[in-house]
Write a protein that binds this DNA or RNA. Structure first.
Lengths: 127, 127
DNA sequence: CACTCTAGCAACACATGAAGTTACATGAGA
DNA sequence: TCTCATGTAACTTCATGTGTTGCTAGAGTG
């Protein structure tokens, strides 16, 4: 599939697709070919790759919208709060990664087919 | 303490302080007085209020920096991914709230005093 | 060899939301 | 009545993620 086709399916821009896919390519989950007839191909086993792998291949984007204002501070109050917050957020992030690590692409693939089978009405897939 | 003094201590602006404190006041954690000699006073027991209470008094700001692009979609693939993501994020958020619910302001207060006692050198508190 | 189609990439533009700022109204003491 | 404080709306600034443009390079086609 070309970046252009993917972008249409995802309602976004080919360059955005390439940026994202670049991370996946570096980890060998997909492969890209330039030139005529080129585009992206899958190059992994769906049951061998988890959402956690994807998250990390995408360079582990910031998970939390909250956090310490600054890591280093002179203020002992801030220090105490930072310490408590960091500890909680680290544990929670670990749980997040563990959960994502249990969801394979194969599971999502199966879920998709389940939804497709249950779907009434016309089944237009991608644009 | 006045918003102005708090703002100096927090390296921010009095209006920002008032915005934040407003949430705390609505929940009865602090009290404010206008006019000459006015300002903010604490009006709760530190061991009765947790970080979770504060978080919720601050109107439970968005916790995660990631999430579904849109809740409603025609796309079955997106639907499957959203379902998996939402489930994980909801559970993780619950764990976050539970952890924050165990941290009282009294505990932070104690931690601060511990740090203060251990501190070498001059002890300048707030500006 | 020229042409077309594709990814790769840098640089720029835009959108969103949080944080900070200004201006003014209101209330309370001196 | 003057000063000092909060309350609040409106505006500005800043950071970040997303989208866009323009160009390069590689790969097949005629």
């Amino acid at each position: 599939m070309t970046s252009e086709a993917l972008a249409r399916a995802l309602n976004t821009n080919p360059v955005v697709v390439r940026r994202l896919m670049g991370g996946l390519r570096e980890h060998g989950y997909v492969h890209s070919e330039k030139g005529h007839g080129g585009g992206w191909t899958l190059s992994c086993q769906l049951d061998q790759v988890t959402l956690r792998d994807i998250y990390e291949a995408l360079d582990a984007p910031r998970l939390f919208a909250i956090g310490n204002r600054s890591e280093e501070t002179e203020c002992l109050v801030e220090e105490a709060v930072n310490h408590a917050m960091s500890s909680v957020l680290a544990d929670v992030k670990a749980q997040f990664l563990a959960r994502f690590g249990q969801i394979t692409l194969a599971a999502l693939h199966a879920d998709f087919h389940q939804r497709l089978a249950e779907r009434h009405g016309p089944t237009t897939l991608c644009k």
